[in-house]
Design a binder for these strands. Structure first.
Lengths: 227, 227
DNA sequence: TTGTTATCTCGATAAACATCGAACTGTTTT
DNA sequence: AAAACAGTTCGATGTTTATCGAGATAACAA
């Protein structure tokens, strides 16, 4: 007998504020301990442990033990894409606290979308690439030009050496900007390179990333029409 | 103050078997009454009415009244895409009844995916288009060739007269076949044309569609390598 | 050793909510 | 008019489940 997809097995897990908050933190792509996650989400360690185990059963997250700590991280690229998809069709609700408003501003400026760069910085980056004719964007389809190929090679990213799995360039709808930023294997590689060069740094207990001085120089130079 | 997306407002609605079953029926694209829907999902009319009203609040469905009946239909293309996305990452569960197995076979053969054709027939159709070089499919991106443009024109579909909203061709991952079928405005137009020519017909209380004699002739001719 | 920390297991509890019966409002049919 | 039908509202009920306290088990630190 064939097998049907159990859709509500997925949606029931996603229908809980705590679990969504945990996933949102894990969308940063980092490894985080149960205690860290529980603290950030403001639930007890037991509850966090319970949620993480349930999500592990569906292979959304995976864990490894080191000493007395258990480190969790996001394990499903598909789920990351689904979460971004959900964010874009969700109704809006007012922000009620100053603290949350502050956190939102940081997320809006720049954040990681699992493996690539999102937020105003990410959207602006894609704009620059288009304007400089490094990529073309027609009919919601992205393509890399020869000039763009050179641009990334200069950054140390050889597109021939990237994993062949999935599209090289992929537009990803940004839920804060309501416009596209760059995903795909090239988007992931670029974000990784930014982290390696310390142009971008993670902020604690958040998906937000901050721009270093060097990073600011790089992105500013892109915006400069003379270069 | 800015506004945050309320993700669980979406997932909580999707975390219920009855509502998912209702949405699945509405994915056919047809207008259906509360009574019809309730009967097909095996819940009482009150319960169906309750669910449909909640989904209407998020603008997932809309309704209009005709006499004593209230007709509901799917109102969000985004939601339709989300549902297909969910189907693809859901864990599988065994089918436990003969009846459900029968229904599954019908769905697998051919069904509507809101506005376009899915199932084995849909996947096979895209294969044919590729093989005859009517469309190209590289790096998960579809493009229409001049020959393809002619092919659809012969069917009565002028791509210059299609709505400019969204991409013309879009690959949509098929959850029964695990391969792509054709979506986008052209995919929608083609499915509509199939219904108009009566090549395809809806089955009652299901998203499945069946092939008429004329329809079989058309799709068989596509598979014929001589033509 | 002794104390501290991180995680997990096991109940108990409290809140959320899908469901349906009963009753009510219209609409269509006879 | 009367009966049948489609849809809705309201209240009650029963199930599901997120949560935490208490206690157990390790790993680490002093």
């Amino acid at each position: 007998m064939p097998e049907l997809p159990d859709l509500t097995a997925v949606t029931k897990l996603l229908a809980d504020e705590s679990r969504v908050a945990l996933l949102s933190l894990l969308l940063s792509g980092r490894f985080q301990t149960v205690h860290e996650l529980a603290h950030a989400v403001k639930i007890t360690d037991q509850t966090a442990s319970y949620h993480l185990k349930r999500m592990q059963a569906l292979e959304w997250v995976s864990s490894y033990k080191q000493g007395r700590s258990v480190y969790y991280h996001l394990a499903s690229e598909q789920l990351a894409a689904l979460l971004e998809n959900l964010l874009n069709i969700s109704p809006r609700k007012k922000i009620n606290s100053f603290k949350k408003n502050q956190a939102f501003k940081e997320l809006k400026a720049a954040r990681s979308c699992y493996s690539h760069l999102a937020g105003a910085l990410g959207v602006n980056f894609l704009d620059c690439l288009c304007q400089k004719n490094f990529v073309t964007f027609q009919h919601e389809q992205l393509a890399l030009t020869p000039a763009g190929q050179l641009f990334f090679k200069d950054l140390g990213i050889d597109i021939n050496k990237l994993p062949s799995k999935g599209p090289l360039l992929k537009p990803c709808l940004d839920w804060t900007e309501r416009r596209f930023h760059l995903a795909g294997t090239l988007g992931s590689a670029f974000f990784k390179e930014c982290l390696r060069r310390q142009w971008l740094r993670y902020t604690p207990a958040s998906r937000a990333v901050t721009l270093s001085w060097d990073g600011k120089l790089f992105f500013d130079s892109l915006n400069n029409p003379l270069v």
